[in-house]
Structure formats: structure tokens, C-alpha cells
């Protein structure tokens, strides 16, 4: 059974003016998040991803469909019942949203106070959590004395206080610099591995998805336009929007304009080798070129690693001018390489 299951969920805001149309923020989205997943939801701002994640803990109420949390539909639950559900769902935010009037320890203790845990238990749990996020020495500090990364670590400790099975991260790293982002993502990975917490990550940054997600859904205009294993979506995006996101971290196939420039600089035949399968032996591929005596030059692309599997596109310029019947030699070698991996000749 999925931990979080959305079925045809919609969120429609009433029109703001009398003549205006209602605003459809979420348009019948269905999504299953399995236990242990790190599920990334990516989209441009305004795509509805933040609204979607706020429906999962009912910070906003859906206007249609079912939202099943561990099998229980929360869509119609009264506010009082929702509070119990929320104890099992932690949340972290882009702006951290810590209580400035409380110390770090006081912030982490807050959910435990709400849950009515006794003081001794609260203190023990707070110490344990601050230790986990590496802020044991900051227990008595106030949020305004912390850096952004430290604030988010407090946010994570607070979100985990009641030992939730689900953690929602709403643009949790968007306000952080790259190095701190990496720190926070590493921490989230540990939360997932060590505590088995299912994480839903909302982001507009593809490298966040690349770093921690196991599954990804791409959102556009309130709809999920593509979903799947991160490797599959990265290596073979089906929609233009997904491809654009992939393109922000993966240098793929050159565009027509880039190709024109490349062609001006390189005389040989231009081919793109695509490595989408972990089984492809790059040594064998380049060995074929070398054995045939074809000179090659990598002119575009790169190899990335996603979930431990290499993948990417390399565009090569091939030349065999010193050989007679150069074209035939190249055709021959390309045929042999096609048996190993995908080859696209760019004309």
C-alpha cells in the first residue's frame, strides 16, 4: 500500500473577481508514493507543486479527489482529526519558519509539546535530534543567531520530533547556497536511510532531484505531465518541459544552433552516442573507433551519474581522411557501435 496516494486530486480557487474564471491550481493529479521513496516533484513556479504538497498534510483543503495517507482518506476529515494525521507528517519550508521567540531546543520541542509528551521525554528527544542534525552546541541559541543551513537543520529536527513516517520538503533548499544545499540534501538522505522516512521533495532545481530523489514527477500548469524513476526520466524525458529540466543539469544533444557552430569548427562526420544503459561498455565503443583507425574528438555532451548509474550523450566528430574510402570505414565502424549503444548521426 502506498504511504501517500493521491487520486484525481483537484484544487480550484474561486474566481477573485465576479467576471473572472476560477483558478485551477491542481488539475486531477494522481500520484502514489511508496514507503521509503524519496519522491521529487519538480516544476516551474506557478506549476502547482507547493499547493500539491500542502494538500498532503491538509494545510490547504482539496476541492476534489481522494488523498490517502496510509490508506486513510483525509480529504473530508474535520480539522480536529487532521491534527492527529499531521503528527505523522513532518514538514520543512523554504523560509525555515522557525519560531524566533524560542531557542533552537524550544523550536524542536514544539511539536512534542503539541503532542502532549512529558517534559523528560521532550528533553531527551530534543537532545537526540540536535545531535543527529549536528547542532547539539546550538541548543540555547536563537534562530536569528544561525546561518541559513543551520536554520534548515533545526527545521529538519523539528519536523522529525514526533517520529513521523512522512516528511514534506517544500523548496527546502531554494534559499540556500550550493554548498549548504548539498549539506541539507545529505542530511535528508540520512533521514531517509536511517529512519526509513518517506520524503516528498518539492523543488524547481533538477540537481536536487538528481542528488536525492528515487522517483520524480514533473508538474506543469497544475498537472503531472511525466513521472517515473529518476534515471528513466533523466535518460529519456518524454515531454518538452521535462527535457528542459533535464537539460539544466545534463548537457545532452546539441541544439540546431549549437550544431551549426560545431559544424563550422569541425570538418568530420558528427555523431551522437547515447549512453542510457548501465550495461554499455564505453571502452568497447571507443576501442572500435581506435581499431578502425578513425580519429575522433568529443565536441559536446558529458556523462552524468544518476542513482549510481552512468548516463549521458557524447557528440563526436569523426575523421578518417588518411584512409581511402573513409566514409565506408566510418559507416562500418558505426554499424558495429550500434550493436553496443544508440548512435545518432547528426547531418
Amino acid at each position: 500500500m502506498p504511504v501517500v496516494s493521491l487520486r484525481d486530486v483537484s484544487k480550484v480557487y474561486p474566481a477573485t473577481t465576479k467576471t473572472g474564471d476560477p483558478v485551477v491550481a491542481i488539475d486531477s493529479v494522481s500520484l502514489d508514493v511508496e514507503a521509503g521513496d524519496v519522491y521529487g516533484i519538480i516544476g516551474y513556479s506557478g506549476a502547482g507543486k507547493s499547493t500539491l504538497v500542502r494538500l498532503v498534510n491538509a494545510l490547504e483543503r482539496s476541492t476534489g479527489g481522494e488523498i490517502l495517507i496510509n490508506g486513510q482518506d483525509i480529504a473530508g476529515l474535520p480539522e480536529r482529526k487532521l491534527r492527529e494525521v499531521r503528527l505523522g507528517i513532518g514538514m520543512i519550508f523554504q523560509q525555515f519558519n522557525l519560531l524566533d521567540s524560542r531557542t533552537v531546543a524550544g523550536n524542536v520541542a514544539y511539536p512534542l509539546e503539541v503532542a502532549g509528551r512529558p517534559k523528560a521525554e521532550r528533553q531527551a528527544r530534543v537532545a537526540e535530534l540536535l545531535d543527529f542534525v549536528g547542532l547539539a552546541d546550538k541548543a540555547r541559541a536563537y534562530p536569528d543567531q544561525l546561518s541559513g543551513g543551520q536554520k534548515q537543520r533545526v527545521g529538519i529536527a523539528r519536523a522529525l520530533a514526533t517520529q513521523p513516517s512522512i516528511l514534506l520538503a517544500d523548496e527546502a533548499t531554494s534559499a540556500l547556497d550550493p554548498e549548504t544545499t548539498h549539506e541539507v540534501l545529505t542530511l535528508l538522505k540520512r533521514v531517509n536511510r536511517e529512519f526509513g522516512v518517506t520524503i516528498i521533495v518539492i523543488t524547481h532545481e533538477m540537481d536536487v532531484i538528481q542528488t536525492i530523489a528515487t522517483k520524480v514527477a514533473v508538474m506543469d500548469q497544475g498537472r503531472v505531465i511525466e513521472r517515473g524513476d529518476v534515471f528513466d526520466v533523466f535518460s529519456n524525458p518524454q515531454h518538452a518541459a521535462s527535457a528542459r529540466f533535464v537539460g539544466t543539469v545534463v548537457k545532452g544533444v546539441p541544439s540546431a544552433a549549437e550544431l551549426a557552430v560545431l559544424r563550422g569548427r569541425h570538418r568530420g562526420r558528427i555523431v551522437t552516442l547515447s549512453f542510457r544503459d548501465a550495461g554499455v561498455d564505453q571502452q568497447a565503443v571507443f576501442g572500435e573507433l581506435a581499431r578502425a583507425g578513425v580519429a575522433f574528438e568529443v565536441i559536446y555532451g558529458g556523462i552524468n551519474e544518476i542513482q549510481g548509474r552512468p548516463f549521458g550523450h557524447l557528440t563526436l566528430s569523426l575523421a578518417a581522411d588518411h584512409l581511402t574510402e573513409a566514409d565506408a570505414v566510418i559507416d562500418d565502424v558505426l554499424a558495429r557501435i550500434r550493436e553496443l549503444t544508440t548512435v545518432t548521426e547528426v547531418r
Partner: peptide, 12 residues
């Protein structure tokens, strides 16, 4: 956002 955070942990 701070109120969201409090609501998200079940505060009434």
C-alpha cells in the same frame, strides 16, 4: 509561514 509550521505539527 510560522503559523503554517505550527499547523503542520498539529497545533490548533
Amino acid at each position: 509561514g510560522v503559523i503554517d509550521a505550527a499547523r503542520s505539527v498539529g497545533a490548533g
